[in-house]
Simulated assay, not measured.
Amino acid sequence: MPISRRQLLQTTSASALLASIGQQAFAQAHPPQLDTARIITGFSAGGTSDVTCRRVATKLSPGYATSSVVVENRTGAGGQIAISYVKGQPADGSTMLQTPTSMLTIYPHIYKKLPYDPVADLAPVSLACVFDFGFAVGPAVPASVKTVPEFLAWAKANPAGANFGSPAAGSTPHFIGALLAKNADITLQHVAYRGTQPAMLDLLGGSVSAVSGPIGDITQHLASGKVRILGTSGTKRSRFAPDVPTLVEQGLKDMAFSEWFGFFLPAKASHEVVARLNAAMKQAIASKDVVDGLAGIGLEAMSSSPAELAELLKKDTAMWAPIVKKIGFTADA
Protein backbone atom coordinates (compact mmCIF):
# COMPACT_ATOMS: atom_id res chain seq x y z
CA MET A 1 0.00 0.00 0.00
CA PRO A 2 1.41 3.42 -0.94
CA ILE A 3 2.36 5.66 2.05
CA SER A 4 1.22 9.25 1.82
CA ARG A 5 3.53 12.16 2.61
CA ARG A 6 1.46 12.92 5.72
CA GLN A 7 1.76 9.33 6.95
CA LEU A 8 5.50 9.40 6.30
CA LEU A 9 5.93 12.61 8.27
CA GLN A 10 3.82 11.26 11.13
CA THR A 11 5.84 8.04 11.19
CA THR A 12 9.13 9.94 11.07
CA SER A 13 8.04 12.30 13.86
CA ALA A 14 6.90 9.40 16.02
CA SER A 15 10.21 7.60 15.47
CA ALA A 16 12.15 10.75 16.36
CA LEU A 17 10.07 11.18 19.51
CA LEU A 18 10.62 7.59 20.56
CA ALA A 19 14.34 7.90 19.89
CA SER A 20 14.48 11.08 21.96
CA ILE A 21 12.65 9.43 24.84
CA GLY A 22 14.96 6.45 24.59
CA GLN A 23 18.04 8.68 24.68
CA GLN A 24 16.73 10.58 27.69
CA ALA A 25 15.99 7.34 29.52
CA PHE A 26 19.46 6.01 28.71
CA ALA A 27 21.08 9.26 29.86
CA GLN A 28 19.20 9.12 33.16
CA ALA A 29 20.11 5.49 33.74
CA HIS A 30 23.72 6.06 32.65
CA PRO A 31 24.92 9.54 33.78
CA PRO A 32 27.77 10.79 31.57
CA GLN A 33 31.34 10.31 32.74
CA LEU A 34 32.64 13.43 34.48
CA ASP A 35 35.96 14.98 33.56
CA THR A 36 36.51 16.70 36.91
CA ALA A 37 34.69 16.80 40.24
CA ARG A 38 35.01 18.69 43.50
CA ILE A 39 34.56 17.77 47.14
CA ILE A 40 33.66 20.77 49.30
CA THR A 41 34.45 20.81 53.02
CA GLY A 42 33.65 23.61 55.43
CA PHE A 43 36.77 23.11 57.53
CA SER A 44 40.43 24.01 57.33
CA ALA A 45 43.25 22.06 55.74
CA GLY A 46 44.90 19.43 57.93
CA GLY A 47 41.84 18.60 60.02
CA THR A 48 39.98 15.30 59.99
CA SER A 49 37.26 16.53 57.61
CA ASP A 50 39.83 17.82 55.13
CA VAL A 51 42.00 14.70 55.32
CA THR A 52 38.97 12.45 54.84
CA CYS A 53 38.06 14.34 51.70
CA ARG A 54 41.56 14.10 50.29
CA ARG A 55 41.89 10.39 51.04
CA VAL A 56 38.61 9.62 49.30
CA ALA A 57 39.31 12.00 46.40
CA THR A 58 42.39 10.04 45.37
CA LYS A 59 40.22 6.95 44.87
CA LEU A 60 37.48 8.64 42.83
CA SER A 61 39.68 9.35 39.82
CA PRO A 62 39.79 8.09 37.12
CA GLY A 63 36.81 5.85 37.87
CA TYR A 64 34.30 8.53 38.88
CA ALA A 65 35.94 11.56 37.23
CA THR A 66 38.43 10.84 34.47
CA SER A 67 40.72 13.83 35.02
CA SER A 68 40.69 14.69 38.72
CA VAL A 69 38.71 15.10 41.94
CA VAL A 70 39.87 18.13 43.92
CA VAL A 71 39.11 19.28 47.46
CA GLU A 72 38.04 22.84 48.23
CA ASN A 73 38.04 24.28 51.77
CA ARG A 74 35.23 26.81 52.05
CA THR A 75 35.52 27.63 55.73
CA GLY A 76 33.42 29.91 57.88
CA ALA A 77 30.18 30.07 59.87
CA GLY A 78 30.88 26.66 61.39
CA GLY A 79 30.48 24.80 58.11
CA GLN A 80 27.42 26.72 56.88
CA ILE A 81 29.26 28.45 54.04
CA ALA A 82 30.25 25.13 52.45
CA ILE A 83 26.74 23.68 52.70
CA SER A 84 25.14 26.85 51.34
CA TYR A 85 27.57 26.82 48.43
CA VAL A 86 26.95 23.20 47.47
CA LYS A 87 23.16 23.43 47.56
CA GLY A 88 23.26 25.91 44.65
CA GLN A 89 25.67 23.97 42.45
CA PRO A 90 24.72 21.87 39.40
CA ALA A 91 23.19 18.55 40.42
CA ASP A 92 25.19 16.54 37.88
CA GLY A 93 27.47 14.96 40.47
CA SER A 94 30.41 17.25 39.76
CA THR A 95 30.19 19.07 43.11
CA MET A 96 29.68 17.15 46.34
CA LEU A 97 29.69 18.08 50.01
CA GLN A 98 31.42 16.33 52.87
CA THR A 99 30.27 17.50 56.27
CA PRO A 100 30.20 16.44 59.91
CA THR A 101 26.77 15.68 61.33
CA SER A 102 26.53 18.74 63.61
CA MET A 103 25.79 21.17 60.78
CA LEU A 104 22.79 19.06 59.77
CA THR A 105 21.46 17.62 63.03
CA ILE A 106 22.24 20.25 65.69
CA TYR A 107 22.18 23.55 63.81
CA PRO A 108 18.42 23.31 63.04
CA HIS A 109 17.85 23.41 66.82
CA ILE A 110 20.10 26.38 67.58
CA TYR A 111 19.47 28.72 64.64
CA LYS A 112 16.10 30.32 64.06
CA LYS A 113 16.98 30.55 60.39
CA LEU A 114 19.63 28.64 58.46
CA PRO A 115 20.73 29.44 54.89
CA TYR A 116 19.97 25.83 53.99
CA ASP A 117 17.53 23.04 54.82
CA PRO A 118 19.43 19.82 55.67
CA VAL A 119 16.67 17.67 54.14
CA ALA A 120 15.25 19.79 51.32
CA ASP A 121 18.56 21.12 49.96
CA LEU A 122 20.78 18.03 50.08
CA ALA A 123 20.66 14.51 48.67
CA PRO A 124 22.33 11.93 50.97
CA VAL A 125 24.93 9.76 49.24
CA SER A 126 26.99 7.82 51.79
CA LEU A 127 28.60 7.82 55.18
CA ALA A 128 32.35 8.40 55.15
CA CYS A 129 33.40 7.46 58.68
CA VAL A 130 32.46 7.44 62.35
CA PHE A 131 34.56 8.58 65.30
CA ASP A 132 34.67 9.62 68.95
CA PHE A 133 35.76 12.90 70.49
CA GLY A 134 38.51 13.67 72.92
CA PHE A 135 38.75 16.31 75.63
CA ALA A 136 42.35 17.48 75.93
CA VAL A 137 44.35 20.05 77.87
CA GLY A 138 47.63 21.80 77.12
CA PRO A 139 50.43 23.79 78.81
CA ALA A 140 47.98 26.24 80.42
CA VAL A 141 46.73 23.47 82.73
CA PRO A 142 48.99 22.03 85.49
CA ALA A 143 50.43 18.55 84.87
CA SER A 144 48.76 17.40 88.08
CA VAL A 145 45.38 17.56 86.31
CA LYS A 146 44.93 14.08 84.85
CA THR A 147 41.15 13.53 84.61
CA VAL A 148 38.13 15.48 83.38
CA PRO A 149 36.70 15.90 86.91
CA GLU A 150 40.08 17.25 88.03
CA PHE A 151 40.06 19.72 85.14
CA LEU A 152 36.55 20.89 86.05
CA ALA A 153 37.67 21.38 89.67
CA TRP A 154 40.75 23.29 88.49
CA ALA A 155 38.61 25.45 86.18
CA LYS A 156 36.27 26.29 89.05
CA ALA A 157 39.23 27.39 91.18
CA ASN A 158 40.87 29.25 88.28
CA PRO A 159 38.13 31.13 86.40
CA ALA A 160 40.66 33.06 84.29
CA GLY A 161 41.68 29.78 82.64
CA ALA A 162 38.22 28.20 82.58
CA ASN A 163 37.83 27.92 78.82
CA PHE A 164 37.86 25.42 75.97
CA GLY A 165 37.98 25.51 72.19
CA SER A 166 35.99 23.54 69.64
CA PRO A 167 35.85 23.38 65.83
CA ALA A 168 32.59 25.36 65.65
CA ALA A 169 29.87 26.92 67.78
CA GLY A 170 26.95 24.53 67.93
CA SER A 171 29.04 21.50 67.00
CA THR A 172 29.04 18.25 68.97
CA PRO A 173 32.43 19.05 70.56
CA HIS A 174 31.03 22.42 71.67
CA PHE A 175 28.09 20.73 73.35
CA ILE A 176 30.32 18.16 75.04
CA GLY A 177 32.19 20.98 76.74
CA ALA A 178 28.95 22.82 77.53
CA LEU A 179 27.43 19.69 79.10
CA LEU A 180 30.55 19.13 81.19
CA ALA A 181 30.29 22.67 82.51
CA LYS A 182 26.56 22.43 83.18
CA ASN A 183 26.83 19.11 85.00
CA ALA A 184 29.67 20.49 87.16
CA ASP A 185 27.78 23.77 87.74
CA ILE A 186 30.70 25.89 86.57
CA THR A 187 31.29 28.39 83.76
CA LEU A 188 33.54 27.31 80.90
CA GLN A 189 34.08 30.00 78.29
CA HIS A 190 33.69 28.53 74.81
CA VAL A 191 36.01 29.63 72.00
CA ALA A 192 34.83 28.68 68.50
CA TYR A 193 37.36 28.05 65.74
CA ARG A 194 37.22 27.27 62.01
CA GLY A 195 38.11 23.64 62.57
CA THR A 196 39.94 21.74 65.30
CA GLN A 197 43.48 22.33 64.02
CA PRO A 198 43.44 26.09 64.69
CA ALA A 199 42.14 25.30 68.17
CA MET A 200 44.96 22.80 68.72
CA LEU A 201 47.55 25.40 67.73
CA ASP A 202 46.18 27.75 70.38
CA LEU A 203 46.13 24.86 72.88
CA LEU A 204 49.80 24.16 72.20
CA GLY A 205 50.54 27.86 72.56
CA GLY A 206 48.78 28.07 75.91
CA SER A 207 46.19 30.66 74.90
CA VAL A 208 43.32 28.22 75.43
CA SER A 209 43.22 25.71 78.29
CA ALA A 210 41.37 22.80 76.71
CA VAL A 211 40.03 21.57 73.39
CA SER A 212 37.07 19.35 72.65
CA GLY A 213 37.36 17.80 69.19
CA PRO A 214 37.64 14.66 67.06
CA ILE A 215 40.11 12.32 68.72
CA GLY A 216 42.21 12.09 65.57
CA ASP A 217 42.74 15.84 65.55
CA ILE A 218 44.17 15.54 69.06
CA THR A 219 46.24 12.34 68.91
CA GLN A 220 48.41 13.69 66.10
CA HIS A 221 49.74 16.29 68.55
CA LEU A 222 50.56 13.93 71.43
CA ALA A 223 54.16 13.52 70.27
CA SER A 224 54.81 17.14 71.21
CA GLY A 225 54.47 16.20 74.87
CA LYS A 226 52.40 19.33 75.45
CA VAL A 227 48.94 17.79 75.00
CA ARG A 228 47.13 15.37 77.30
CA ILE A 229 43.82 13.68 76.52
CA LEU A 230 41.78 13.53 79.71
CA GLY A 231 38.75 11.65 78.37
CA THR A 232 37.04 10.26 75.29
CA SER A 233 33.36 10.42 74.37
CA GLY A 234 32.54 6.92 73.12
CA THR A 235 30.52 4.17 74.77
CA LYS A 236 33.80 2.27 75.16
CA ARG A 237 37.46 3.24 75.10
CA SER A 238 38.77 4.37 71.76
CA ARG A 239 41.21 2.02 70.06
CA PHE A 240 43.14 5.14 69.13
CA ALA A 241 43.64 6.07 72.80
CA PRO A 242 43.11 2.82 74.74
CA ASP A 243 44.72 4.11 77.94
CA VAL A 244 42.32 7.05 78.21
CA PRO A 245 39.09 6.40 80.14
CA THR A 246 35.77 7.46 78.67
CA LEU A 247 33.78 10.31 80.16
CA VAL A 248 31.23 7.77 81.41
CA GLU A 249 34.00 5.78 83.14
CA GLN A 250 34.93 8.98 84.96
CA GLY A 251 31.45 9.24 86.46
CA LEU A 252 30.02 11.63 83.87
CA LYS A 253 26.71 9.96 83.09
CA ASP A 254 24.89 10.42 79.77
CA MET A 255 28.11 11.71 78.21
CA ALA A 256 28.53 9.17 75.42
CA PHE A 257 28.70 10.79 71.98
CA SER A 258 30.09 9.81 68.60
CA GLU A 259 29.80 11.46 65.22
CA TRP A 260 29.92 10.75 61.51
CA PHE A 261 31.01 12.47 58.33
CA GLY A 262 28.76 12.11 55.31
CA PHE A 263 28.82 12.85 51.59
CA PHE A 264 25.93 14.73 49.95
CA LEU A 265 24.92 16.17 46.58
CA PRO A 266 22.60 19.07 45.75
CA ALA A 267 18.99 18.01 46.31
CA LYS A 268 18.06 17.98 42.62
CA ALA A 269 20.57 15.26 41.81
CA SER A 270 18.78 12.40 40.08
CA HIS A 271 18.53 8.94 41.59
CA GLU A 272 20.93 7.71 38.92
CA VAL A 273 23.56 10.37 39.71
CA VAL A 274 23.29 9.61 43.43
CA ALA A 275 23.56 5.87 42.77
CA ARG A 276 26.65 6.32 40.58
CA LEU A 277 28.44 8.40 43.22
CA ASN A 278 27.34 6.03 46.00
CA ALA A 279 28.85 3.07 44.16
CA ALA A 280 32.10 4.97 43.65
CA MET A 281 32.12 6.10 47.30
CA LYS A 282 31.59 2.59 48.65
CA GLN A 283 34.51 1.31 46.62
CA ALA A 284 36.74 4.22 47.64
CA ILE A 285 35.90 4.06 51.35
CA ALA A 286 36.47 0.29 51.44
CA SER A 287 39.93 0.56 49.87
CA LYS A 288 42.87 -0.31 52.11
CA ASP A 289 44.53 3.06 51.56
CA VAL A 290 41.46 4.94 52.80
CA VAL A 291 40.73 2.56 55.70
CA ASP A 292 44.33 2.70 56.93
CA GLY A 293 44.68 6.41 56.22
CA LEU A 294 41.57 7.31 58.20
CA ALA A 295 42.57 5.00 61.04
CA GLY A 296 45.80 6.98 61.23
CA ILE A 297 43.80 10.04 62.24
CA GLY A 298 41.34 8.31 64.57
CA LEU A 299 38.50 7.64 62.13
CA GLU A 300 36.69 4.38 61.35
CA ALA A 301 35.95 4.23 57.62
CA MET A 302 32.31 3.31 57.01
CA SER A 303 30.04 3.70 53.98
CA SER A 304 26.26 3.37 53.68
CA SER A 305 23.39 3.50 51.24
CA PRO A 306 21.70 6.87 50.59
CA ALA A 307 18.60 5.61 52.44
CA GLU A 308 20.64 4.57 55.49
CA LEU A 309 22.29 7.99 55.65
CA ALA A 310 18.91 9.73 55.33
CA GLU A 311 17.53 7.65 58.21
CA LEU A 312 20.59 8.36 60.38
CA LEU A 313 20.19 12.08 59.69
CA LYS A 314 16.56 11.93 60.80
CA LYS A 315 17.34 9.92 63.95
CA ASP A 316 20.21 12.13 65.12
CA THR A 317 18.28 15.34 64.47
CA ALA A 318 15.56 14.09 66.84
CA MET A 319 18.12 12.96 69.44
CA TRP A 320 19.72 16.39 69.74
CA ALA A 321 16.49 18.34 70.34
CA PRO A 322 16.23 17.65 74.12
CA ILE A 323 19.99 18.02 74.63
CA VAL A 324 20.03 21.49 73.07
CA LYS A 325 17.03 22.45 75.16
CA LYS A 326 18.81 21.30 78.32
CA ILE A 327 21.89 23.37 77.55
CA GLY A 328 19.84 26.37 76.52
CA PHE A 329 22.25 27.47 73.83
CA THR A 330 21.10 29.46 70.84
CA ALA A 331 23.37 30.75 68.11
CA ASP A 332 21.07 33.73 67.55
CA ALA A 333 21.51 35.13 71.06
Rank of each mutant, 00 (worst) to 15 (best):
89 Q>C: 08
311 E>L: 13
272 E>P: 02
160 A>V: 12
314 K>W: 06
101 T>A: 14
239 R>Q: 15
320 W>N: 05
91 A>V: 04
331 A>L: 01
239 R>F: 09
300 E>L: 14
98 Q>V: 11
116 Y>F: 14
289 D>M: 02
183 N>T: 10
267 A>S: 13
229 I>P: 06
286 A>G: 04
151 F>D: 06
46 G>Y: 02
59 K>N: 09
246 T>G: 12
235 T>Y: 10
282 K>L: 00
251 G>W: 10
6 R>Y: 02
324 V>W: 00
4 S>Q: 01
38 R>C: 12
306 P>I: 03
70 V>K: 14
314 K>Q: 15
108 P>D: 00
120 A>Q: 11
229 I>Y: 07
216 G>S: 04
66 T>H: 12
77 A>I: 00
170 G>V: 02
168 A>R: 05
230 L>A: 02
324 V>Q: 02
54 R>A: 05
203 L>T: 03
255 M>Y: 08
206 G>Q: 07
192 A>N: 06
211 V>F: 08
327 I>Q: 09
144 S>G: 11
100 P>C: 06
238 S>Y: 07
7 Q>H: 12
233 S>I: 11
64 Y>H: 06
230 L>E: 03
166 S>Q: 13
57 A>K: 09
45 A>K: 15
229 I>R: 07
156 K>V: 07
318 A>L: 14
6 R>D: 05
320 W>R: 07
45 A>N: 10
330 T>E: 09
